[in-house]
Design a protein around this nucleic acid. Structure first.
Lengths: 342, 342
DNA sequence: CCGTCATTTGTAATCGATTACATTTTGTTG
DNA sequence: CAACAAAATGTAATCGATTACAAATGACGG
């Protein structure tokens, strides 16, 4: 039996005041006389009191926690964003629950349970793969205004969101390759139902058209952001009758998979083929060759998403209204994986 | 404003029974007649009732959540372990809170707050950097028996733990290099105060001695598991008067940092220098060259740690007693970064 | 020194589920 | 069918903090 728990009542007794006063000392200190406040705080210290969150949450009808929904925790891109968010939430005394959807498109709405069980007050969704049906659910249960999207988003749904300028990122990548003399540029996309896939491909195609580059259907290869899909794409590229001289990949992981397989097949990067990624995860600077890529500002993404959600939860309705997505600038990071065409 | 919440009382009314019966239908269905059970479940379905976790937690004096304490969420090695755990906990209806210590050795015991605020019932600690003082705290607050260590651990403290066979892993690495003809083998360690650092270095040194290999102090280079420290180590190696022909790194990330910097300086891996890592994160198979490394079974680690903790929390004291650490086998994964000496 | 209003503090209801204990129902047996 | 045990269900206290409302205290002008 551990030391028996100290309730607010015990503190009240020790301080010679009512429980209401103790409660106020904690959450609205300005309501109290300096004298009482001091007495109460002293009592809190001497008893070692800590508020019981379960009781508080029950009474205040809130959970004191937020859910972060990630498509793949194993991907460092996401885990580093989370690291950023966690700070913002910890400061405001929210706990963070993390759930990995594992690309689970089986529509079991598991994330919904967190809301329905009142385990969380809000959610940051890093997974744009939610179906519109899920959204019906969300709104029907009055959870609109408690959800913020980060990185990904859902077309047609008007939740606050923070994202990088994906279209511009793709343009930057293509332009960079163009300036290095490349004309035959391929693209490995993300999964076909992903919203980022669309944005990045769109930017890529637009810029390619604008620059008057040749177009070949087979130069747009379907991937899924994963290492493995980069490897698979490499095989396709090696078999092409007209091989591109450069590839823009929808993620750094894809780029790694691609380079790894190309190298294994005797195609040197960047001498024989230039490669550009997207994300700029930490490893990109340490790959061989160091990866030229588009940087997303992960800390800013996490922080901004966190503060958007906090605003929503604290009734800053102005924020909720502004369904204008927050779009963060991206940046081309030039390293060694893309070179002037030989 | 949403549809007003449905309380257990509402279900009771709908089913024509008492709240106690409803509660029992949910948590001890075997106590009820099949008939009443059916009536209650039907009422639950028709009302769309969901238990309020805050109320339950308050009454049951538990939190329904566990804390996972990670030294660095950005490291895929950890995030992939978490992915494994999360499944085990979700099944048993526990939420997981994730906190990143960010290598925070400032002794602010932040993780303690989660317990004291009764936000979590238990913790899995992936960070062996806790000081003995922290442990005094833990035990003083009756939190022994609620903590499980995974991967890392703390010497002298007797918490249940799951870990890989680090010593054997290091031996395997050295032996492999030996068999490839290497005699001058260096080692880049983890941070000096880390428990894994000790185990891996010990295995390395033991095997080196056993095989009668030459010893040079400067061949043991201090790192900290990070990419950057691998890069720094490369500089030291390049300046050595007697350069080793192979390096065993305490983590895959270190190996990447090392290879990246060596390559940038014209030292080819594996032709001029062999490198072996530790962990076998997903990327290792996609690095250039693909990394020869020691595989830790991450899914098993996560799963085992999770079930150990669940056992503890559910009073399987037999488990708590057995302070014998669970040690999982490691495996040498041969790829391209270590080659026969030329 | 009193009345009025503002400030500070206290009392007790409340959040919603669980469970000890009490009561009723069912089943068994002589 | 009475008598009793076992099984099923109900009643109400409880977990611990918050807060609406009530009461007390203090300030101040006349």
């Amino acid at each position: 039996m551990g030391p028996k728990t100290i309730r607010i009542r015990d503190v009240a007794k020790a301080a010679g005041v009512s429980t209401a006063t103790v409660s106020r000392a904690i959450s609205n200190p300005e309501l109290l006389t300096e004298a009482t406040r001091d007495v109460v705080f002293e009592a809190i210290r001497s008893t070692g009191y800590r508020v019981n969150k379960a009781a508080r949450n029950l009474r205040k009808r809130q959970a004191g926690a937020v859910l972060i929904l990630v498509p793949n925790l194993g991907n460092p891109f996401f885990s580093q964003i989370i690291a950023g968010m966690s700070e913002a939430f910890a400061q405001r005394d929210y706990s963070i629950l993390v759930a990995d959807t594992m690309g689970n498109r089986s529509g079991d709405d598991q994330f919904m349970d967190y809301f329905l069980d009142s385990r969380v007050d809000g959610m940051i969704c890093l997974d744009g793969g939610l179906t519109l049906q899920d959204f019906g659910q969300l709104e029907a249960n009055g959870m609109a205004g408690r959800v913020v999207f980060a990185c990904e988003w859902v077309d047609g749904a008007s939740f606050p969101s923070v994202r990088s300028d994906n279209v511009e990122g793709a343009r930057l990548a293509v332009r960079h390759l163009y300036e290095l003399g490349h004309r035959k540029i391929a693209h490995i996309t993300g999964p076909h139902d992903n919203i980022l896939t669309g944005a990045r491909r769109q930017g890529m195609v637009e810029e390619r058209t604008r620059l008057g580059l040749p177009v070949r259907d087979e130069w747009i290869i379907r991937g899924d952001f994963s290492l493995e899909s980069g490897r698979e794409a490499a095989e396709k590229i090696l078999k092409m009758e007209e091989r591109p001289t450069a590839v823009f990949c929808a993620s750094d992981q894809v780029a790694f998979g691609l380079i790894s397989a190309l190298t294994a097949n005797g195609v040197r990067v960047p001498e024989d083929m230039s490669v550009v990624g997207f994300d700029d995860i930490e490893l990109s600077d340490f790959y061989v060759p160091a990866l030229t890529t588009i940087r997303q500002d992960r800390p800013a993404l996490g922080l901004k998403a966190a503060s958007l959600l906090l605003d929503c939860l604290n009734g800053k309705t102005s924020m909720i209204q502004s369904a204008e997505p927050v779009v963060l600038d991206v940046e081309l990071v030039v390293r060694q994986s893309a070179a002037r065409i030989q």
